[in-house]
Design a binder for these strands. Structure first.
Length: 652
DNA sequence: AAAAAAC
């Protein structure tokens, strides 16, 4: 009855890297109400004692819907739609029905009325509750999400609070997402010994920076040429961005490292200092993965690097650790003391990611590494008040991690100066070169120090990045891991050919299981709809897509990470980079249009060598298109005709 | 055509 309960045993150790958020505090046993909630919070608590720690008490006093939700799940509830369990689960929505006619403005007004304007400290937590979990609020959000005026509603929801929160809200977010940061913030800003002279740029000049010819460039001009002549397996194409145009670009010629080449090699052997090595160990990374072994020394040399390692192969540390090490060495070389915050110090490294969640996740990995040598990081991304971000920048930050929009925004506001950026990392670099991302990224890169080091990483790095490489990189070293073909993958792929009208029920049937399941939808609307449908079918699920406000996005992802919920329905916002431990099934409710998307979505499972399964749903008349896509992805799958009620759906 | 990314 109660679906998606966790197996009592809890899960196996999660080592591996990025999502600190993912690993730390998963509690094993089923969630049975407040107490388990609390332990669930520990993980979050470790990151933000305040936020999670508060939860239980607050929850009880305010009767947060979640608790009752969980209790219900624990008790098992009727899976029948007629019983509207989903409604029960989300009491807010219905309870708040009366509120439905109330304009948002009222909510807003309320908020203001309620929150003592002056007492920030008290207010923040309170507000937080309201925003993220109080019934009232949840109701409001829900309403927005479902109502036709949702779009406007969201905008209002996000914007309204922001206005008056600007000065204090930032902190809240911090608490929510990462504790360490707070410490940093609390460290008193040190004396301003800032002496970042332009000189430093030169001092930082990378040895070997100019010695091109070390390796024939894989890019110019042939690559540019290749870029313009994107080709498919079937036929050459000359037009870019044709709708539905999914093409395979040339793979980069790369130096390949073999897995056994890293046997017995430690991070210290790669040139990382002791503090960094210790920090990595603290993150669960005891010894380097191949892509890390391949790229870390080269990054430390100061070269531009293109790194290609399949999903879940440890790319974050591959660029994060050497970036920190380099900044630290630079610092030491210029006689600066580490560990002291210098007001107004400009950032020296920039890490760009395509989504906020990914930026956050990268920071969770990089921040502890940076902290180990006294460097500060900050996240700069949209959807949250900028006040805290700006505050951090003013206090001095060494590494900025964020998404393009807000970064450009702050640059234009004159609050972020990239002129001293010596290392820029583009995670999911090929995606950052897609339409819509490329130009902002280019503008941002142009703001960084001339000739500064650039690192481009992606599981699907191809010549699509030529636009950036041509302009910004010098004689890049290209590295990949040998033998990373699908045959060696730990992911099992299946394709079910279904009747479109059964899709939602089939998804529900597949998702009704033990273990974490990530479901992809092509549109936000369908993701939302599916999540609701799943709940109606008795499968506890949350959604993640761009129509949600950031608080909800963060929270819903966190719910999957923490194991509070086992099913997440997402758009492609979650396709790339997001690491959640132990997702053992990925369902593509809508097949992707691009083979790269297929690879990235699939890559949310089977991470760090674990087993994973991917089920892609398609319809009869889309079979061919999907099979071509799979061909480009070099994945061989037998298509299976599946009907609702088939055993394969329940016994996957 | 959709998704993401600023306010």
């Amino acid at each position: 009855m109660s679906k998606n309960r966790k197996p009592a045993g809890g899960r196996v150790a999660r080592d591996f890297d990025p999502a600190r958020g993912g690993s730390g505090g998963r509690r094993g046993p089923g969630r049975t109400g407040a107490s388990s909630q609390k332990s669930g919070s520990q993980k979050a608590g470790s990151r933000s004692p305040k936020h999670r720690g508060y939860r239980p008490e607050d929850a009880e006093s305010t009767k947060a819907p979640r608790w009752s939700r969980d209790e219900r799940v624990a008790k098992g509830r009727s899976p029948h739609r007629a019983d509207r369990p989903g409604r029960d689960e989300r009491p807010n929505r219905d309870d708040r029905a009366g509120r439905y006619d109330r304009p948002n403005r009222d909510d807003r007004a309320n908020r203001d009325d309620r929150a003592g304007r002056y007492d920030r400290d008290e207010r923040a937590p309170r507000r937080f509750d309201r925003d993220e979990r109080a019934p009232r609020n949840e109701g409001r959000y829900s309403r927005d999400e479902r109502s036709p005026r949702g779009e406007r509603g969201h905008g209002r929801d996000e914007r309204a609070p922001r206005r008056d929160r600007d000065e204090r809200a930032p902190r809240r977010f911090e608490r929510d997402e990462r504790a360490p940061r707070r410490d940093r913030d609390e460290r008193a800003p040190r004396r301003d010994r800032d002496e970042r002279a332009p000189r430093r740029d030169r001092e930082f000049d990378r040895p070997g920076f100019r010695d091109s010819g070390r390796r024939p460039s894989t890019f110019f001009p042939e690559q540019r040429h290749a870029n313009e002549q994107r080709r498919t397996h079937e036929q050459p194409r000359t037009q870019r961005f044709e709708p539905g145009d999914d093409v395979v670009l040339d793979r980069l010629q790369a130096e390949a490292i073999t897995a056994d080449a890293v046997d017995g090699v430690g991070f210290a052997d790669l040139g990382l200092g002791r503090n960094v090595v210790d920090a990595l160990a603290g993150l669960g990374a005891a010894t380097p993965f191949p892509i890390q072994a391949a790229t870390i020394p080269v990054v430390l040399e100061g070269r531009d690097v293109l790194g290609r390692g399949r999903t879940g192969s440890g790319k974050t540390i591959a660029f994060g650790a050497p970036t920190v090490e380099r900044l630290m060495q630079d610092w030491a070389a210029t006689g600066k003391a580490g560990g002291k915050r210098q007001v107004g110090r400009k950032p020296r490294a920039l890490i760009l990611a395509p989504t906020r969640e990914l930026a956050l996740q990268i920071d969770r990995t990089v921040q502890p590494i940076a902290q180990s040598v006294g460097l500060f990081t900050t996240q700069i991304y949209g959807g949250v008040p900028q006040g805290r971000q700006v505050g951090a920048l003013q206090r001095g930050v060494d590494i900025v991690i964020g998404t393009p929009g807000r970064i450009e925004d702050l640059i234009e506001q004159g609050r972020l100066d990239l002129s001293e950026i010596r290392i820029t990392v583009l995670d999911e670099a090929d995606h950052m070169c897609d339409l819509g991302f490329l130009e902002p990224v280019q503008r941002i890169l142009r703001r960084t120090a001339e000739g500064s080091q650039k690192l481009l990483f992606s599981a699907t790095l191809d010549t699509g990045v030529a636009a950036l490489v041509d302009e910004f990189l010098v004689d890049p070293a290209v590295h990949e891991v040998a033998g990373e073909d699908q045959a060696s993958s730990t992911i099992e792929h299946r394709v079910f050919v279904i009747d479109n009208r059964d899709k939602r029920d089939i998804v529900a049937s597949l998702a009704d299981r033990n273990g974490k399941t990530l479901i992809f939808s092509r549109t936000r609307a369908f993701a939302e709809e599916l999540a609701l449908h799943l709940e109606d079918a008795g499968v506890f699920a949350v959604a993640l897509h761009g129509d949600l406000n950031q608080a909800k996005r963060t929270r819903n992802l966190q719910q999957l990470t923490s194991g509070r919920v086992d099913v997440l329905v997402a758009t492609d916002v979650a396709a790339r980079g997001i690491h959640v431990d132990d997702i053992d099934l990925v369902i593509q409710a809508d097949a992707p249009d691009e083979y790269k998307t297929y690879l990235h979505r699939s890559g949310r499972t089977g991470r760090a060598g674990r087993e994973g399964r991917v089920v892609t749903l398609t319809t009869r008349h889309r079979q061919r298109r999907l099979s071509e896509l799979l061909g480009r992805a070099e994945i061989e799958v037998e298509f299976e005709d599946v009907r609702l009620g088939d055993e394969v759906l329940s016994n996957l």
